[in-house]
């Protein structure tokens, strides 16, 4: 869904999404890293269960909520990736993976 512009200085790191290893680059947000890696949606809507991805990218729409390192409901478009981060969708938002 997204692609990265060439960035010559940012270091490649590894994060985990739903137990799967994913390559990310330091300095990018968790939501962006996932959507650059072929993940097709970030959460599922609690009411209808439909797929959602960030709309606003600035912390307003809450479509980017994920569990990061055990902490639920974080706005993943505001949080930069870090080596070894473990990221999951919420229990209620399981839906199909990737």
């Amino acid at each position: 869904m997204l692609k990265r512009i060439q960035s010559s200085k940012s270091k490649k790191i590894t994060i985990f999404f739903e137990e799967k290893q994913i390559a990310a680059y330091e300095g990018e947000s968790v939501a962006a890293a996932l959507l650059c890696s072929g993940v097709k949606h970030i959460r599922t809507a609690p009411v209808s269960g439909t797929s959602r991805a960030p709309y606003c990218w600035m912390g307003v729409c809450f479509e980017c909520l994920l569990e990061i390192d055990g902490q639920p409901n974080l706005q993943s478009c505001l949080i930069p990736v870090q080596e070894g981060m473990k990221i999951r969708r919420h229990a209620l938002n399981d839906g199909d993976s990737a």
Binding site: L2, R4, S10, A32, A33, L35, W57
Partner: peptide, 10 residues
């Protein structure tokens, strides 16, 4: 904003 915050584009 996405471009600035993560260097990513659609």
């Amino acid at each position: 904003v996405l471009l600035k915050s993560s260097g990513a584009v659609p």
